[in-house]
Design a protein around this nucleic acid. Structure first.
Length: 504
DNA sequence: TGGGGTCCT
DNA sequence: AGGACCC
Protein backbone atom coordinates (compact mmCIF):
# COMPACT_ATOMS: atom_id res chain seq x y z
CA UNK A 1 0.00 0.00 0.00
CA UNK A 2 2.75 2.40 0.93
CA UNK A 3 4.30 1.91 -2.47
CA UNK A 4 1.05 2.61 -4.25
CA UNK A 5 -0.24 -0.92 -4.62
CA UNK A 6 -4.01 -0.84 -4.26
CA UNK A 7 -6.78 -3.32 -3.92
CA UNK A 8 -8.35 -4.57 -7.16
CA UNK A 9 -5.43 -3.18 -9.09
CA UNK A 10 -4.35 -4.76 -12.33
CA UNK A 11 -1.30 -6.86 -11.76
CA UNK A 12 0.41 -4.98 -14.52
CA UNK A 13 0.16 -1.64 -12.82
CA UNK A 14 0.87 -3.18 -9.43
CA UNK A 15 4.18 -4.44 -10.79
CA UNK A 16 4.87 -1.03 -12.23
CA UNK A 17 4.40 0.51 -8.82
CA UNK A 18 6.36 -2.18 -7.04
CA UNK A 19 8.54 -4.42 -9.17
CA UNK A 20 9.59 -6.61 -6.24
CA UNK A 21 6.00 -7.51 -5.51
CA UNK A 22 5.43 -11.18 -4.85
CA UNK A 23 2.05 -12.59 -5.69
CA UNK A 24 0.93 -15.61 -3.78
CA UNK A 25 -1.77 -17.97 -4.85
CA UNK A 26 -4.74 -17.20 -2.67
CA UNK A 27 -7.41 -19.09 -4.51
CA UNK A 28 -7.77 -21.76 -1.88
CA UNK A 29 -10.09 -20.24 0.63
CA UNK A 30 -9.88 -22.85 3.33
CA UNK A 31 -7.41 -20.94 5.47
CA UNK A 32 -9.49 -17.82 5.24
CA UNK A 33 -12.60 -19.77 6.15
CA UNK A 34 -10.88 -21.14 9.22
CA UNK A 35 -9.64 -17.69 10.17
CA UNK A 36 -13.07 -16.17 9.64
CA UNK A 37 -14.73 -18.79 11.77
CA UNK A 38 -12.23 -18.20 14.54
CA UNK A 39 -13.00 -14.51 14.55
CA UNK A 40 -16.72 -15.21 14.42
CA UNK A 41 -16.57 -17.40 17.50
CA UNK A 42 -14.37 -14.91 19.25
CA UNK A 43 -16.90 -12.15 18.62
CA UNK A 44 -19.77 -14.26 19.83
CA UNK A 45 -18.27 -14.18 23.31
CA UNK A 46 -19.27 -10.52 23.45
CA UNK A 47 -22.76 -10.83 22.06
CA UNK A 48 -24.69 -13.61 20.36
CA UNK A 49 -25.93 -11.11 17.81
CA UNK A 50 -23.14 -11.23 15.25
CA UNK A 51 -23.71 -11.01 11.53
CA UNK A 52 -21.01 -12.06 9.13
CA UNK A 53 -20.60 -10.36 5.78
CA UNK A 54 -18.10 -12.11 3.59
CA UNK A 55 -15.13 -13.52 5.43
CA UNK A 56 -13.70 -10.46 7.12
CA UNK A 57 -16.54 -8.19 8.10
CA UNK A 58 -18.86 -8.49 11.05
CA UNK A 59 -21.74 -6.54 12.54
CA UNK A 60 -22.40 -6.69 16.24
CA UNK A 61 -25.55 -5.44 17.88
CA UNK A 62 -24.28 -4.57 21.31
CA UNK A 63 -27.41 -2.77 22.51
CA UNK A 64 -27.89 -5.16 25.37
CA UNK A 65 -24.27 -5.32 26.33
CA UNK A 66 -24.19 -1.56 26.52
CA UNK A 67 -27.34 -1.53 28.62
CA UNK A 68 -25.63 -3.71 31.18
CA UNK A 69 -23.03 -1.04 31.72
CA UNK A 70 -25.56 1.79 31.73
CA UNK A 71 -26.97 0.95 35.12
CA UNK A 72 -23.60 0.76 36.72
CA UNK A 73 -21.58 3.63 38.07
CA UNK A 74 -19.89 5.17 35.11
CA UNK A 75 -16.42 3.93 35.51
CA UNK A 76 -15.47 3.07 32.04
CA UNK A 77 -12.63 1.03 33.39
CA UNK A 78 -15.24 -1.46 34.48
CA UNK A 79 -15.08 -2.79 30.96
CA UNK A 80 -11.36 -2.25 30.72
CA UNK A 81 -11.63 0.39 28.14
CA UNK A 82 -9.49 3.35 27.44
CA UNK A 83 -11.16 6.69 27.24
CA UNK A 84 -9.26 8.80 24.79
CA UNK A 85 -11.17 11.25 22.66
CA UNK A 86 -13.77 13.03 24.75
CA UNK A 87 -14.39 9.85 26.64
CA UNK A 88 -14.84 7.90 23.45
CA UNK A 89 -12.24 5.33 22.74
CA UNK A 90 -10.27 6.69 19.78
CA UNK A 91 -11.78 8.73 16.98
CA UNK A 92 -14.98 10.64 17.44
CA UNK A 93 -16.33 11.87 14.16
CA UNK A 94 -16.63 15.64 14.20
CA UNK A 95 -17.83 16.37 10.75
CA UNK A 96 -15.81 17.52 7.85
CA UNK A 97 -15.65 20.40 5.49
CA UNK A 98 -18.42 20.08 2.99
CA UNK A 99 -18.22 21.89 -0.27
CA UNK A 100 -20.51 22.89 -3.04
CA UNK A 101 -20.76 19.97 -5.33
CA UNK A 102 -21.12 20.21 -9.06
CA UNK A 103 -22.06 17.07 -10.91
CA UNK A 104 -21.29 15.92 -14.39
CA UNK A 105 -24.68 17.02 -15.56
CA UNK A 106 -24.12 20.46 -14.18
CA UNK A 107 -26.71 20.11 -11.45
CA UNK A 108 -25.45 21.78 -8.35
CA UNK A 109 -26.21 20.40 -4.99
CA UNK A 110 -25.43 22.46 -2.02
CA UNK A 111 -24.32 20.72 1.09
CA UNK A 112 -24.61 23.18 3.94
CA UNK A 113 -21.54 23.51 6.06
CA UNK A 114 -22.22 22.75 9.66
CA UNK A 115 -22.05 25.90 11.70
CA UNK A 116 -22.75 24.56 15.14
CA UNK A 117 -21.59 21.31 16.48
CA UNK A 118 -24.24 19.05 17.85
CA UNK A 119 -22.59 17.71 20.89
CA UNK A 120 -25.52 17.10 23.09
CA UNK A 121 -28.52 14.88 22.82
CA UNK A 122 -30.82 14.25 25.72
CA UNK A 123 -31.84 10.75 24.82
CA UNK A 124 -28.73 9.27 26.31
CA UNK A 125 -27.35 8.02 23.05
CA UNK A 126 -24.02 9.71 23.53
CA UNK A 127 -23.40 7.88 26.71
CA UNK A 128 -24.37 4.62 25.08
CA UNK A 129 -22.12 5.27 22.13
CA UNK A 130 -19.34 6.11 24.51
CA UNK A 131 -19.71 2.75 26.14
CA UNK A 132 -20.11 1.10 22.76
CA UNK A 133 -16.90 2.62 21.53
CA UNK A 134 -15.07 1.39 24.59
CA UNK A 135 -16.51 -2.04 24.05
CA UNK A 136 -15.26 -1.92 20.49
CA UNK A 137 -11.85 -0.93 21.70
CA UNK A 138 -11.84 -3.79 24.14
CA UNK A 139 -12.91 -6.22 21.45
CA UNK A 140 -10.22 -5.05 19.07
CA UNK A 141 -7.55 -5.19 21.73
CA UNK A 142 -8.49 -8.72 22.72
CA UNK A 143 -8.80 -9.77 19.11
CA UNK A 144 -5.23 -8.77 18.54
CA UNK A 145 -3.99 -10.31 21.77
CA UNK A 146 -5.77 -13.60 21.29
CA UNK A 147 -5.88 -14.13 17.57
CA UNK A 148 -3.34 -11.67 16.23
CA UNK A 149 -5.59 -9.67 13.95
CA UNK A 150 -5.88 -5.95 13.77
CA UNK A 151 -9.24 -4.54 12.76
CA UNK A 152 -11.01 -1.32 12.03
CA UNK A 153 -14.36 -0.59 13.59
CA UNK A 154 -17.21 1.85 13.25
CA UNK A 155 -19.61 2.54 16.09
CA UNK A 156 -22.94 4.22 15.55
CA UNK A 157 -26.68 3.86 15.91
CA UNK A 158 -27.49 2.00 12.71
CA UNK A 159 -25.85 -0.70 10.68
CA UNK A 160 -25.21 1.63 7.79
CA UNK A 161 -23.78 4.41 9.91
CA UNK A 162 -21.54 1.95 11.74
CA UNK A 163 -20.32 0.45 8.51
CA UNK A 164 -19.53 3.78 6.94
CA UNK A 165 -17.95 5.09 10.13
CA UNK A 166 -15.58 2.20 10.07
CA UNK A 167 -14.15 3.47 6.82
CA UNK A 168 -13.33 6.94 8.08
CA UNK A 169 -10.09 5.97 9.81
CA UNK A 170 -8.77 2.86 8.24
CA UNK A 171 -6.12 0.55 9.18
CA UNK A 172 -6.42 -0.58 12.76
CA UNK A 173 -8.52 2.31 14.07
CA UNK A 174 -12.08 2.96 15.07
CA UNK A 175 -14.52 5.79 14.64
CA UNK A 176 -17.68 6.65 16.50
CA UNK A 177 -20.39 8.67 14.82
CA UNK A 178 -23.08 10.48 16.79
CA UNK A 179 -26.54 10.44 15.18
CA UNK A 180 -26.57 14.18 14.59
CA UNK A 181 -23.61 13.91 12.27
CA UNK A 182 -24.97 11.15 10.11
CA UNK A 183 -27.08 13.12 7.60
CA UNK A 184 -24.32 15.55 6.67
CA UNK A 185 -21.75 12.81 6.52
CA UNK A 186 -23.94 10.93 4.08
CA UNK A 187 -24.77 13.97 1.99
CA UNK A 188 -21.29 14.33 0.59
CA UNK A 189 -20.86 10.67 -0.31
CA UNK A 190 -21.34 9.27 -3.77
CA UNK A 191 -24.51 7.21 -3.92
CA UNK A 192 -22.46 4.13 -4.68
CA UNK A 193 -21.14 4.25 -1.11
CA UNK A 194 -24.58 3.50 0.28
CA UNK A 195 -24.74 -0.19 1.09
CA UNK A 196 -27.33 -1.63 -1.24
CA UNK A 197 -26.70 0.86 -4.00
CA UNK A 198 -24.47 -1.15 -6.24
CA UNK A 199 -23.08 -0.79 -9.71
CA UNK A 200 -26.40 -1.11 -11.47
CA UNK A 201 -28.42 1.21 -9.26
CA UNK A 202 -25.69 3.82 -9.26
CA UNK A 203 -25.73 3.83 -13.07
CA UNK A 204 -29.46 4.28 -13.20
CA UNK A 205 -29.18 7.16 -10.78
CA UNK A 206 -26.35 8.68 -12.73
CA UNK A 207 -28.57 8.70 -15.78
CA UNK A 208 -30.87 10.96 -13.78
CA UNK A 209 -28.02 13.25 -12.89
CA UNK A 210 -27.77 11.91 -9.39
CA UNK A 211 -24.25 11.34 -8.23
CA UNK A 212 -24.23 12.32 -4.57
CA UNK A 213 -26.42 11.32 -1.66
CA UNK A 214 -27.55 14.90 -1.19
CA UNK A 215 -29.04 14.83 -4.67
CA UNK A 216 -30.76 11.58 -3.92
CA UNK A 217 -32.82 13.36 -1.30
CA UNK A 218 -34.36 15.54 -3.96
CA UNK A 219 -36.01 12.53 -5.58
CA UNK A 220 -39.48 11.57 -4.42
CA UNK A 221 -40.09 8.13 -3.07
CA UNK A 222 -42.28 7.39 -6.09
CA UNK A 223 -39.55 8.42 -8.47
CA UNK A 224 -36.99 6.29 -6.71
CA UNK A 225 -39.27 3.29 -6.73
CA UNK A 226 -40.01 3.68 -10.41
CA UNK A 227 -36.30 3.90 -11.05
CA UNK A 228 -35.00 1.12 -8.84
CA UNK A 229 -37.98 -0.99 -7.87
CA UNK A 230 -40.12 -1.10 -4.78
CA UNK A 231 -37.61 -2.70 -2.48
CA UNK A 232 -34.41 -0.86 -3.28
CA UNK A 233 -36.23 2.36 -4.08
CA UNK A 234 -38.00 2.69 -0.77
CA UNK A 235 -34.98 1.52 1.13
CA UNK A 236 -32.75 4.05 -0.56
CA UNK A 237 -35.27 6.80 0.06
CA UNK A 238 -34.75 6.28 3.77
CA UNK A 239 -31.07 5.41 3.72
CA UNK A 240 -30.03 8.61 2.00
CA UNK A 241 -31.61 10.49 4.91
CA UNK A 242 -29.74 8.41 7.39
CA UNK A 243 -32.77 6.35 8.32
CA UNK A 244 -31.87 2.71 8.45
CA UNK A 245 -34.19 0.17 10.00
CA UNK A 246 -32.16 -2.86 9.07
CA UNK A 247 -31.17 -5.20 11.83
CA UNK A 248 -28.10 -7.18 12.68
CA UNK A 249 -29.06 -10.63 11.59
CA UNK A 250 -27.07 -13.70 12.57
CA UNK A 251 -27.40 -15.90 9.54
CA UNK A 252 -26.84 -19.35 10.96
CA UNK A 253 -25.56 -22.14 8.81
CA UNK A 254 -24.66 -21.50 5.20
CA UNK A 255 -27.47 -22.08 2.76
CA UNK A 256 -25.24 -22.89 -0.18
CA UNK A 257 -21.73 -24.15 -0.63
CA UNK A 258 -19.76 -23.92 -3.82
CA UNK A 259 -16.32 -24.26 -5.33
CA UNK A 260 -15.27 -22.58 -8.50
CA UNK A 261 -12.28 -22.12 -10.69
CA UNK A 262 -11.56 -19.79 -13.53
CA UNK A 263 -9.06 -20.50 -16.27
CA UNK A 264 -7.94 -19.29 -19.64
CA UNK A 265 -10.09 -21.68 -21.58
CA UNK A 266 -11.41 -25.17 -21.77
CA UNK A 267 -12.90 -26.51 -24.96
CA UNK A 268 -13.08 -30.28 -24.55
CA UNK A 269 -15.25 -32.53 -22.48
CA UNK A 270 -12.41 -34.55 -20.99
CA UNK A 271 -10.87 -31.46 -19.53
CA UNK A 272 -14.20 -30.20 -18.30
CA UNK A 273 -14.92 -33.46 -16.55
CA UNK A 274 -11.54 -33.38 -14.87
CA UNK A 275 -12.07 -29.85 -13.62
CA UNK A 276 -15.56 -30.67 -12.47
CA UNK A 277 -14.40 -33.67 -10.50
CA UNK A 278 -11.71 -31.61 -8.83
CA UNK A 279 -14.20 -28.98 -7.80
CA UNK A 280 -16.49 -31.69 -6.54
CA UNK A 281 -13.73 -33.20 -4.49
CA UNK A 282 -13.13 -29.97 -2.63
CA UNK A 283 -16.82 -29.47 -2.16
CA UNK A 284 -17.35 -32.94 -0.74
CA UNK A 285 -14.64 -32.36 1.82
CA UNK A 286 -16.72 -29.46 3.01
CA UNK A 287 -20.08 -31.21 2.95
CA UNK A 288 -18.50 -34.11 4.84
CA UNK A 289 -17.18 -31.79 7.53
CA UNK A 290 -20.56 -30.17 7.80
CA UNK A 291 -22.30 -33.53 7.97
CA UNK A 292 -20.13 -34.50 10.89
CA UNK A 293 -20.87 -31.28 12.66
CA UNK A 294 -24.52 -30.74 11.86
CA UNK A 295 -25.80 -33.98 10.40
CA UNK A 296 -27.29 -32.46 7.28
CA UNK A 297 -26.73 -33.11 3.60
CA UNK A 298 -27.52 -31.14 0.47
CA UNK A 299 -30.32 -32.13 -1.83
CA UNK A 300 -29.62 -29.78 -4.69
CA UNK A 301 -26.75 -29.75 -7.13
CA UNK A 302 -25.89 -26.94 -9.52
CA UNK A 303 -23.37 -26.41 -12.26
CA UNK A 304 -22.43 -22.96 -13.51
CA UNK A 305 -20.28 -22.14 -16.52
CA UNK A 306 -18.98 -18.99 -18.07
CA UNK A 307 -18.43 -19.11 -21.77
CA UNK A 308 -15.95 -16.68 -23.18
CA UNK A 309 -18.17 -15.53 -26.03
CA UNK A 310 -21.23 -15.08 -23.89
CA UNK A 311 -19.21 -13.39 -21.19
CA UNK A 312 -17.80 -10.93 -23.65
CA UNK A 313 -21.20 -10.03 -25.01
CA UNK A 314 -22.57 -9.51 -21.55
CA UNK A 315 -19.53 -7.53 -20.60
CA UNK A 316 -20.10 -5.17 -23.46
CA UNK A 317 -23.74 -4.74 -22.60
CA UNK A 318 -23.05 -4.02 -19.01
CA UNK A 319 -19.91 -2.09 -19.64
CA UNK A 320 -17.54 -3.73 -17.28
CA UNK A 321 -19.69 -6.13 -15.39
CA UNK A 322 -18.10 -9.52 -15.32
CA UNK A 323 -21.10 -11.69 -16.02
CA UNK A 324 -22.01 -14.15 -18.67
CA UNK A 325 -22.62 -17.09 -16.39
CA UNK A 326 -25.31 -19.61 -16.91
CA UNK A 327 -26.36 -22.47 -14.72
CA UNK A 328 -28.46 -25.62 -14.46
CA UNK A 329 -29.52 -27.29 -11.29
CA UNK A 330 -31.14 -30.53 -10.27
CA UNK A 331 -32.55 -32.17 -7.17
CA UNK A 332 -30.39 -34.94 -5.78
CA UNK A 333 -31.63 -37.75 -3.55
CA UNK A 334 -30.40 -37.09 -0.05
CA UNK A 335 -28.40 -40.24 0.48
CA UNK A 336 -26.14 -39.61 -2.47
CA UNK A 337 -24.08 -37.09 -0.55
CA UNK A 338 -23.56 -39.44 2.36
CA UNK A 339 -19.84 -40.02 2.97
CA UNK A 340 -20.54 -43.72 3.26
CA UNK A 341 -21.85 -44.10 -0.27
CA UNK A 342 -19.07 -45.81 -2.25
CA UNK A 343 -20.52 -44.69 -5.56
CA UNK A 344 -20.94 -41.11 -4.49
CA UNK A 345 -18.34 -39.53 -6.78
CA UNK A 346 -19.52 -41.50 -9.76
CA UNK A 347 -23.14 -40.57 -9.27
CA UNK A 348 -22.42 -36.93 -8.71
CA UNK A 349 -20.02 -36.54 -11.60
CA UNK A 350 -22.53 -38.22 -13.82
CA UNK A 351 -25.23 -35.84 -12.64
CA UNK A 352 -22.91 -32.88 -13.18
CA UNK A 353 -22.06 -33.97 -16.70
CA UNK A 354 -25.74 -34.20 -17.48
CA UNK A 355 -26.13 -30.66 -16.31
CA UNK A 356 -23.14 -29.70 -18.38
CA UNK A 357 -24.69 -31.04 -21.55
CA UNK A 358 -27.85 -29.15 -20.79
CA UNK A 359 -25.79 -26.00 -20.64
CA UNK A 360 -23.61 -26.83 -23.62
CA UNK A 361 -25.36 -28.99 -26.21
CA UNK A 362 -23.16 -31.82 -27.46
CA UNK A 363 -22.95 -30.62 -31.02
CA UNK A 364 -21.84 -27.12 -30.12
CA UNK A 365 -18.37 -25.73 -29.64
CA UNK A 366 -17.57 -24.11 -26.37
CA UNK A 367 -14.83 -22.12 -24.76
CA UNK A 368 -15.33 -22.05 -21.05
CA UNK A 369 -13.47 -19.74 -18.73
CA UNK A 370 -15.11 -20.73 -15.46
CA UNK A 371 -16.76 -23.67 -13.77
CA UNK A 372 -18.65 -23.68 -10.51
CA UNK A 373 -20.14 -26.61 -8.63
CA UNK A 374 -22.62 -25.72 -5.94
CA UNK A 375 -24.85 -27.54 -3.50
CA UNK A 376 -27.80 -26.24 -1.54
CA UNK A 377 -31.00 -27.18 0.27
CA UNK A 378 -29.35 -28.83 3.21
CA UNK A 379 -31.63 -31.13 5.13
CA UNK A 380 -31.16 -33.21 8.23
CA UNK A 381 -30.14 -36.73 7.36
CA UNK A 382 -30.88 -39.41 9.91
CA UNK A 383 -28.15 -41.91 9.29
CA UNK A 384 -27.89 -45.47 8.12
CA UNK A 385 -31.44 -46.68 8.62
CA UNK A 386 -34.83 -45.36 7.71
CA UNK A 387 -33.66 -43.11 4.93
CA UNK A 388 -34.29 -43.34 1.27
CA UNK A 389 -31.42 -43.49 -1.08
CA UNK A 390 -33.34 -44.91 -3.97
CA UNK A 391 -35.82 -43.75 -6.54
CA UNK A 392 -38.45 -42.90 -3.93
CA UNK A 393 -36.63 -39.97 -2.54
CA UNK A 394 -36.35 -38.47 -5.97
CA UNK A 395 -39.90 -37.31 -5.53
CA UNK A 396 -39.35 -36.13 -2.03
CA UNK A 397 -37.45 -32.94 -2.38
CA UNK A 398 -40.19 -30.57 -3.44
CA UNK A 399 -42.34 -31.21 -0.41
CA UNK A 400 -39.47 -30.77 1.93
CA UNK A 401 -38.55 -27.17 1.46
CA UNK A 402 -40.81 -25.67 4.11
CA UNK A 403 -38.22 -25.69 6.84
CA UNK A 404 -36.73 -22.39 5.76
CA UNK A 405 -36.76 -19.16 7.64
CA UNK A 406 -36.75 -20.69 11.03
CA UNK A 407 -33.96 -18.48 12.26
CA UNK A 408 -35.30 -15.41 13.94
CA UNK A 409 -33.17 -12.37 14.44
CA UNK A 410 -32.30 -11.91 18.05
CA UNK A 411 -33.46 -8.35 18.07
CA UNK A 412 -36.91 -7.70 16.70
CA UNK A 413 -37.27 -5.13 13.99
CA UNK A 414 -39.82 -3.12 15.94
CA UNK A 415 -37.28 -2.54 18.63
CA UNK A 416 -34.84 -1.32 16.14
CA UNK A 417 -36.85 1.37 14.49
CA UNK A 418 -35.30 4.75 14.49
CA UNK A 419 -38.36 6.77 15.43
CA UNK A 420 -36.42 8.20 18.29
CA UNK A 421 -33.23 7.36 20.00
CA UNK A 422 -35.15 5.66 22.73
CA UNK A 423 -35.09 2.34 21.00
CA UNK A 424 -31.49 2.51 20.57
CA UNK A 425 -28.88 0.25 19.28
CA UNK A 426 -25.19 0.39 18.93
CA UNK A 427 -23.81 -1.39 15.95
CA UNK A 428 -20.24 -2.21 15.44
CA UNK A 429 -18.33 -3.41 12.52
CA UNK A 430 -15.02 -5.13 12.86
CA UNK A 431 -13.37 -5.34 9.55
CA UNK A 432 -10.33 -6.28 7.63
CA UNK A 433 -8.39 -8.81 9.51
CA UNK A 434 -4.87 -7.86 8.70
CA UNK A 435 -3.00 -11.10 9.05
CA UNK A 436 0.21 -9.71 7.71
CA UNK A 437 0.46 -7.23 10.53
CA UNK A 438 0.91 -9.71 13.31
CA UNK A 439 4.25 -9.15 15.02
CA UNK A 440 4.77 -12.80 15.85
CA UNK A 441 5.04 -13.81 12.24
CA UNK A 442 8.44 -14.94 11.06
CA UNK A 443 10.57 -12.38 9.38
CA UNK A 444 12.77 -14.56 7.30
CA UNK A 445 13.25 -13.20 3.86
CA UNK A 446 14.36 -16.19 1.93
CA UNK A 447 10.98 -17.68 1.36
CA UNK A 448 9.53 -14.58 -0.17
CA UNK A 449 12.53 -14.10 -2.40
CA UNK A 450 12.65 -17.59 -3.69
CA UNK A 451 9.11 -17.43 -4.95
CA UNK A 452 9.85 -14.25 -6.79
CA UNK A 453 10.30 -15.88 -10.12
CA UNK A 454 8.17 -13.50 -12.04
CA UNK A 455 9.21 -12.86 -15.57
CA UNK A 456 7.44 -10.06 -17.36
CA UNK A 457 5.37 -11.28 -20.28
CA UNK A 458 3.70 -9.40 -23.04
CA UNK A 459 0.77 -11.71 -23.20
CA UNK A 460 -2.40 -10.36 -21.74
CA UNK A 461 -4.75 -12.35 -19.58
CA UNK A 462 -1.92 -14.49 -18.36
CA UNK A 463 -2.17 -13.48 -14.77
CA UNK A 464 -2.29 -17.01 -13.50
CA UNK A 465 1.16 -17.53 -14.90
CA UNK A 466 2.40 -14.79 -12.65
CA UNK A 467 1.20 -16.40 -9.49
CA UNK A 468 3.93 -18.09 -7.55
CA UNK A 469 2.80 -21.43 -6.27
CA UNK A 470 4.44 -21.09 -2.89
CA UNK A 471 4.24 -23.73 -0.21
CA UNK A 472 1.18 -25.88 -0.61
CA UNK A 473 -1.88 -24.27 0.83
CA UNK A 474 -0.27 -20.99 1.71
CA UNK A 475 -2.75 -18.15 1.92
CA UNK A 476 -2.64 -15.46 -0.70
CA UNK A 477 -1.26 -12.57 1.14
CA UNK A 478 0.60 -10.06 -0.90
CA UNK A 479 3.81 -8.92 0.66
CA UNK A 480 6.76 -7.02 -0.60
CA UNK A 481 10.38 -7.89 0.00
CA UNK A 482 11.27 -4.32 0.83
CA UNK A 483 10.92 -4.20 4.56
CA UNK A 484 13.00 -1.09 4.83
CA UNK A 485 10.23 0.96 3.34
CA UNK A 486 7.19 -1.08 4.16
CA UNK A 487 6.39 -1.60 7.78
CA UNK A 488 5.37 -5.19 7.40
CA UNK A 489 6.97 -8.51 7.96
CA UNK A 490 8.84 -9.30 4.83
CA UNK A 491 8.06 -12.99 4.71
CA UNK A 492 4.95 -14.64 3.47
CA UNK A 493 2.48 -16.13 5.89
CA UNK A 494 2.44 -19.89 5.87
CA UNK A 495 -0.30 -22.33 6.69
CA UNK A 496 1.61 -23.16 9.86
CA UNK A 497 1.50 -19.55 10.94
CA UNK A 498 -2.25 -19.56 10.61
CA UNK A 499 -2.43 -22.81 12.52
CA UNK A 500 -0.31 -21.32 15.26
CA UNK A 501 -2.50 -18.30 15.47
CA UNK A 502 -5.52 -20.45 15.93
CA UNK A 503 -3.86 -23.18 17.98
CA UNK A 504 -5.01 -25.75 15.49
C1' DT B 1 -9.91 -9.45 -11.74
C1' DG B 2 -10.94 -14.38 -7.26
C1' DG B 3 -13.84 -17.17 -5.05
C1' DG B 4 -16.93 -17.00 -2.47
C1' DG B 5 -21.80 -15.75 -0.37
C1' DT B 6 -27.15 -13.62 0.28
C1' DC B 7 -31.48 -12.17 -1.26
C1' DC B 8 -34.84 -10.69 -4.92
C1' DT B 9 -37.16 -11.03 -9.45
C1' DA C 1 -32.40 -19.33 -13.79
C1' DG C 2 -30.65 -15.06 -13.62
C1' DG C 3 -29.56 -10.51 -11.57
C1' DA C 4 -28.04 -7.48 -8.12
C1' DC C 5 -25.85 -6.95 -4.08
C1' DC C 6 -22.06 -7.86 -0.40
C1' DC C 7 -17.05 -9.16 0.98
Amino acid sequence: RARGVRKLQRLKSAFEACPELVIRNGSDLKHYRAASEGIFHFLKRFTPCVERLGLDEFFLDVTEKVAEFLGKPVTLSSIECYAEADGFATHLYKGRKLTLVETQTGVKSHVPARTSTVDQCNCGCHRRLQIGSCLAKKIRTDLFKELGYTASAGISVTKMAAKLSGEVHKPNQQTTMLPAYVPDFLAALRVRKIPGCGYSSARKLQAEGVEYVSQLRALSQKKLISLLGELIGSRLYLLCRGEDNSIVKPRGKEKTMSEEDSFLGSDNVVDVELRISQLLKGLLERTDARFERHGDLPSLLRLTVRDRVAAKKKGEQKNGYFGGRSSKQTAIPMGVFHPGDPKRDEKLISALMQLFFKLVPRNLCFHLTLLNVAVARFQPFGGASGNQTGIDSFFHTAANTSSRNNEKPLISSKRDRLESHNFFSVKMKVAKAEVASHPSLPRNKSEATHTNNYEPTKKRNRNKDRVAEGPAGSPGIIVTTDDAKVARPSSAVTAEDIDDLFNL
